[in-house]
Computed example of a mutant assay.
Amino acid sequence: MRKRATAKQVANAAGVSKWTVIRAFTEGASITDESKRKVLEAAAALNYTPNLLARSLATKSTGQIAVFVDDFANPQKLPFLETLTEQLQAVGRVAMLININHHFDHVHALLHADQRQVDAIILFGTAFRDETLTDRQLGNGTPPMFVLARDSQIEGVPAVVCDAELALREIVDHLHDKGYRRPGFMSGAPALSTALRRREYFSKFWSEKGISHIAHFAAEKYSFEAGALGIRNYLSSTSKDRIDVLMCENDILALGAMDEIRGKFGLSVPDDIAIVGFDNYELGGSSAYGLTTYEQPLREMVGVIIRMIKNEHDPETVTLPGRLVLRSST
């Protein structure tokens, strides 16, 4: 097996020091254009690439960002993960995806990430207990943490989130203007220390319009099947004064509910029950669904997280506006 070229060999070929070679491959390092040109030409001739593992020992930075995910049934996770990994790689970082489940909880994940000396941790899921942060196993050296796409109630852990208050005000105003007066809300998986607050604002803005009763039913997780089951249980037990519009906490719940309403119960959307989702999942825009929804500014949200990780933005909670997308389901 052919040995890898070393920084020392590149330095000898370029007629520079080993540290000049290191600077040539270090973002933002001080080096003249001429020296960098010599190093890159020598590196190309020797087929040299930097040993990032060895470099991390000197720089105290591995370039690895741990991403904790605990609800893979939610398909909206994929566009976020695609954007997150793309933007991390563009700035020389790489994502380490950690699956939070019954066999590998947050304490294990934090310990695992810390042992691998990740530079930061992004919490991208529904369940995170603040007491985890004070677990005696973790000590004081845990990497900085950030919450993506949900509010954070964890002291010292900032979040980057879509503005739920603005979103739900726009949604309720639209539904009220369309004449709906018997609203319902389907929430998803229960959150612990990260939340969405969509149900809270949905109720608040309907109350401001004189409608205080909001039918509420919860799904166990964010999935198509859970959305179908939630509305099935409701419609099977309610025939009088049922809701005329259903707001779902995300699009996959809404699509499951819509199929159940039309298929099992033979009702019309939106004539019998209108449907609203959240996220602007691609399938919802198809002619089969025409789902009214709210689009999160995912590229901007991920961009803020990246800047925080790079210390180019203060570590503070940031709320960004999204966009109401009107379609035939309302």
Results as ranks from 00 to 15, higher is better:
Arg2Glu: 12
Lys3Gly: 09
Lys3His: 10
Arg4Cys: 08
Ala5Met: 03
Lys8Leu: 14
Gln9His: 05
Val10Thr: 07
Val10Arg: 02
Asn12Cys: 05
Asn12Val: 13
Ala13Tyr: 05
Val16Cys: 01
Phe25Pro: 02
Thr26Asp: 04
Thr26Lys: 10
Ala29Val: 14
Ser30Glu: 14
Ile31Lys: 06
Asp33Ala: 13
Arg37Leu: 11
Lys38Thr: 00
Ala45Asp: 14
Leu46Lys: 07
Asn47Met: 02
Ala54Ser: 08
Arg55Thr: 00
Lys60Met: 11
Pro75Asn: 08
Pro75Leu: 08
Gln76Met: 14
Lys77Gly: 00
Leu78Trp: 00
Phe80Trp: 14
Leu81Gln: 11
Glu82Asn: 14
Leu84Gly: 04
Leu84Asn: 01
Leu84Ala: 05
Thr85Met: 07
Thr85Asn: 05
Glu86Ile: 01
Gln87Val: 07
Gly92Phe: 12
Arg93Leu: 13
Ala95Ser: 10
Ile98Cys: 07
His102Tyr: 10
His108Gly: 03
Ala109Asp: 06
Leu110Trp: 01
Leu111Glu: 15
Asp114Gly: 13
Gln115Ser: 10
Val118Tyr: 10
Gly125Gln: 05
Phe128Leu: 09
Asp130Thr: 11
Leu138Trp: 02
Pro144Asn: 05
Met145Asn: 02
Leu148Trp: 04
Ser152Val: 02
Gln153Met: 03
Gly156Leu: 07
Gly156Met: 08
Val157Phe: 06
Pro158Ser: 02
Cys162His: 00
Glu165Asp: 14
Leu166Gln: 15
Ala167Phe: 11
Leu168Lys: 02
Arg169Cys: 11
Val172Ser: 05
Leu175Ser: 09
His176Val: 12
Arg182Ala: 12
Phe185Met: 10
Met186His: 08
Ser187Ile: 08
Pro190Phe: 12
Leu192Trp: 10
Ala195Ser: 10
Leu196Phe: 07
Leu196Thr: 15
Leu196Asn: 15
Arg197Ser: 13
Arg199Thr: 00
Glu200Tyr: 15
Tyr201Asp: 02
Phe202Trp: 07
Phe205Trp: 05
Glu208Met: 00
Glu208Ser: 00
Gly210Trp: 04
Ile214Thr: 13
Ala215Trp: 06
Ala218Trp: 02
Ala219Asp: 01
Ser223Thr: 07
Ala226Thr: 08
Leu229Asp: 14
Gly230Lys: 01
Tyr234Lys: 10
Leu235Pro: 02
Leu235Asp: 04
Ser236Glu: 11
Thr238Ser: 06
Asp241Glu: 12
Asp241Trp: 09
Arg242Asp: 07
Ile243Cys: 10
Asp244Glu: 08
Val245His: 14
Leu246Asp: 13
Cys248Leu: 07
Glu249Ile: 09
Leu253Gly: 00
Leu253Glu: 11
Gly256Lys: 09
Gly256Cys: 13
Ile261Trp: 04
Gly263Asn: 13
Gly266Ser: 10
Ile273Glu: 07
Phe278Gln: 12
Phe278Gly: 12
Tyr281Val: 13
Gly285Lys: 01
Gly290Ile: 06
Thr293Gln: 01
Tyr294Gln: 09
Val302Tyr: 04
Ile305Trp: 03
Ile305Ala: 01
Arg307Ile: 01
Arg307Ala: 01
Glu312Gly: 07
His313Glu: 15
Gly322Pro: 02
